[in-house]
Design a protein around this nucleic acid. Structure first.
Lengths: 202, 202, 202, 202
DNA sequence: TTATAAACGAGACGGTACGTCTTGTCTTATG
DNA sequence: CATAAGACAAGACGTACCGTCTCGTTTATAA
């Protein structure tokens, strides 16, 4: 049976040495992940490349999922964050493009896919995945505040679903035109639902 | 670099012994996969449970991706296949529900996710993923033949994207209502594209 | 071709843990070898019996030849080492008996035979075999120092050849009488060569 | 436990097809053995090279030892057989050279060494080894018949021991000079033993 | 000339070993 | 005395060979 590790303590995040190590490792991991794939990113390889002991890695991230979470959450901000606005179409389009660009970053993309694949059999991954989704959802609603419109779960999925499907499953790039189409059709549903009781005659 | 194995030949599919072995393994794998997860389904475990040697597994499926493909492609037919028809809404709705039900099957679900996660770093997986998508696409178009309408790639993604996103990323069940919504909004785009510049009323 | 293993380093001999493991394994190997034969002494069996992982064995001895060398070279000293002396006959006889007794030890015997059989197709084994021979040769010459006589290669072979032939090929025990005979006839050659053209009587 | 094979019968030697197969395999084995070594001569390799099924090999030689025996015993006659004679020195020298040449043949050499190494743990090999020795011994005595002298076991070992030791253990070629030396010193012993009661004064 | 028996090819399979790798824990020496 | 260096157990990887067991197909000998 896997006995309880004796000397396992998370390093204190304040410590500047800890910060340095952590950043170095994450940077190397980010660079390595898309090259070697999720299963190829072993602690052994990572330790060697980051000039760190495997033991140190274990201290920071007790399992690979934890490492991937950090990779996803602390992704390098791409800068082109969408701006809030009152025009729903513009906001939604910008947000979708930002999502697309963020996930197109190879390391993030690989990490997200790996976590997703594990989610069914790893509660931590599942929870992380849900949280990531909720964060994005909240971000979108925040951007939409000026418009006075808020998006519910189903509508949210209708918006980002086609884009992620194109990225992950079709394995092709969601062009700007594709995103326009998505937003356009999404708006029809949105309008229909925002004014559900519009019984124009049959 | 991994050198070419010397004595590697796929078993001849005709041989009844081969059939038996193959079926037994696939059945066990199907039962095992959702319980132990994609990384937990090792050849060692599978061999033990299917009362087969690891070597035999390698003979049949030279890598795990190949096994997962077979698992996905030879999934137990759920029986409730949609029927062709001339009403696009009905056909699309039925097809979507069939897709949802098929992928809800735990083994298939896990296998698809695993293949997807690997696709970025494994050409075989990528190709298989594309082929699976194309098969489904072709199936839908076949069902739509009576209606005289055919779906292109982008439209196809618009249709199934939200459903798979709900399944895999939101990790919640795409209800019949959700599917109805998807189809409804999808039809607006479809109509707009089928008659791109036809502003005259019916 | 077998590619170079990545993380292969010989354990540091100083480490007490290493010492312990090494000794334990060698002891078990020595006990196992004559029972199961050279081909039967697999790393798998040895690991199991020595309560050690196969990986540990590979760390210490990258191939079986290396293990056999250690077995031969660190053979349990039989104690009855011959003593130097000025009487060539006595020294040679004692040395031969010591050789016979040493090689009669089952593990050593088996190991020597195995290495010999491999020597033609394994440079390491060949080299080790030569070195072992040279060591013995040097040892004999050392014992002979008081007598002022030194033995060359051919003479050395003339001395030990019959004894090893009796052991390995005839598969019978070289008795003390046999050894006496060998030494007696060997001395005639030795004398003839030491005074090659000295036909004048003493 | 290794269960008793059901349909295992040695092929009938008379059958010409059997002869053909057998000869072809032995020829290929003889050519292969020195190149790949005793452990490298697997049934798999041999089967492939001899254009024969592994099963066929098993039918002819139930184990590798059997194959090696045949290889040794049916060695290609080198032609230069020594001739009987009344001069012991000449006969012994010729016989030794013939022995040396025979065993210098790479396949034979390898086979003999392999069988020797196995002899301690394989009764068949041990017996074969003894028989081979006896055959050679008998052959020598036959050659010596005209001289009226017969050699016993110990004397036999004294004669061939140094030569084989030089070949197998020193791994150097026994030159004609070396053989002359061996024979010369051997004759002294022989004479001493043939006329044991020669109490010439000290 | 045809049976019929043996030898053979083809190949699936259970075992077992190989040599390598990663993982997570534990130990030892060192700075 | 805390930490790096690294030894270790556990176990999976992909490959190789072994010995056996089908099942057909060819060859030879005998009827």
């Amino acid at each position: 049976m896997p006995q309880q590790p004796l000397h396992r303590r998370q390093p204190t995040p304040g410590n500047p040495r800890v910060q340095r190590t952590r950043n170095r490792v994450l940077t190397v991991a980010r660079e390595l992940l898309p090259r070697v794939g999720p299963t190829g990113l072993t602690y052994a390889l990572l330790a060697e490349r980051a000039d760190v002991t495997r033991q140190t890695l274990y201290r920071h991230w007790p399992n690979r999922a934890a490492l991937l979470f950090d990779l996803i959450l602390e992704g390098p901000d791409l800068g082109n964050y969408p701006t809030p606005g009152s025009d729903v179409r513009t906001v939604a389009t910008d947000w979708l493009k930002s999502l697309r660009d963020g996930i197109s970053e190879p390391a993030i993309r690989t990490a997200v896919l790996a976590v997703t694949a594990q989610a069914d059999h790893d509660a931590d991954s599942a929870q992380a995945l849900v949280r990531i989704g909720q964060d994005r959802h909240a971000a979108l609603n925040k951007l939409l505040e000026p418009s006075g419109i808020q998006i519910d779960d189903a509508e949210f999925t209708l918006l980002y679903g086609p884009v992620l499907a194109r990225l992950f499953l079709d394995r092709s790039h969601p062009t700007d035109e594709f995103i326009d189409t998505v937003v356009t059709q999404w708006l029809t549903t949105l309008e229909a639902q925002q004014r559900p009781a519009t019984p124009n005659a049959s």
